[in-house]
């Protein structure tokens, strides 16, 4: 029995060493994809609305779009905190907040879904403040399975990062402007659009306390570090404007472009995302408004 445990223990040590090595290599590769800026003039954060709608990197020096699809404000907050902790001077943050962002109905669908959380966490691992994970899991009331899955998922990410880098020469995706794939392919029917938007923003819909909690944290972090925060509602096909920001306390500006391209089928990839043309026009509008050129 002693020999068996000795055998198991030795092998476990070798395994840990091997996994640790993989983690080091993966982190080194990860560092390549992290921005090295010491100053960021505009940092864009948010979900797919900002990812497909704001192409600012090519327009403004030292600007960075790190928005990513299905991104909750928790991860936006983590990204911002990463730069502030690294003493990077961030002048302004553009945070995409749509009518759907604070809708409780989306909480369980993707914003605070266990699978989505784990996938995001493993992708952004080097950006995350580990102490925030416990608070997050407690707030969201995830099942105990999440605790079991965290370590294997993080190990998975290490191998994924290494394989992607070796085979494709790519470093991990942590966000960025991405032209919508559905460019001009979807026929927009206003009736369908209305029905979708009704689902997203039913009148008097319950507010997501979780999103609100992390949105307030972003505002607080910006205010404490004298970062100018601009909340932007990107154009929506049916022109829905922002509501429900009364509970967001602190200093921030709101640019509500919800109705900027209302019913203009040429500029949307679908009912809520701009296509390539729409993104270009909207980005120019935004840059002009901010006087950043």
């Amino acid at each position: 029995m002693r020999s068996f445990f000795k055998y198991l223990l030795t092998f476990s040590l070798v395994l840990c060493l091997f996994l640790w090595l993989a983690t080091i290599i993966s982190n080194q590769i990860y560092q390549l994809s992290l921005p090295k800026n010491s100053e960021i003039s505009v940092l864009v954060l948010g979900d797919s609305h900002a990812q497909s709608g704001i192409n600012i990197d090519s327009r403004v020096n030292n600007s960075l779009n790190l928005a990513a699809s299905a991104e909750s404000f928790y991860f936006c907050h983590q990204k911002l905190q990463y730069f502030i902790a690294k003493k990077v001077k961030v002048e302004s943050v553009i945070l995409a907040v749509g009518p759907h962002s604070l809708s409780k109905s989306l909480d369980s669908k993707w914003l605070f879904d266990e699978l989505n959380f784990i996938e995001k966490l493993r992708s952004y691992w080097p950006l995350i403040n580990v102490s925030s994970i416990g608070e997050y899991i407690t707030n969201v009331h995830f099942s105990r399975r999440v605790y079991f899955e965290l370590i294997p998922e993080l190990l998975y990410q290490n191998f994924y990062t290494i394989e992607r880098f070796v085979l494709l020469g790519k470093s991990p995706f942590i966000g960025g402007y991405t032209e919508s794939e559905n460019n001009n392919k979807i026929k927009l029917v206003p009736e369908v659009s209305d029905s979708i938007n009704k689902k997203l923003t039913p009148e008097g819909a319950a507010i997501s306390e979780l999103q609100l909690f992390y949105l307030n944290k972003i505002v607080q972090l910006c205010n404490e570090n004298r970062v100018k925060l601009i909340v932007v509602n990107t154009p929506l096909f049916n022109g829905t404007k922002l509501e429900n920001l009364q509970k967001v306390k602190g200093d921030y500006e709101v640019f509500d472009y919800g109705d900027l391209f209302k019913n203009d089928t040429r500029l949307f990839a679908d009912f809520v995302h701009l296509n390539g043309n729409g993104a270009e026009i909207f980005s120019d509008t935004l840059v002009n408004k901010l006087n950043l050129k």
Partner: peptide, 16 residues
Amino acid sequence: RWLIYLLLIVFVIYFK
């Protein structure tokens, strides 16, 4: 042998 065990574990973690 141990290398193959490690490889199998990597497969299980990463190729799952």
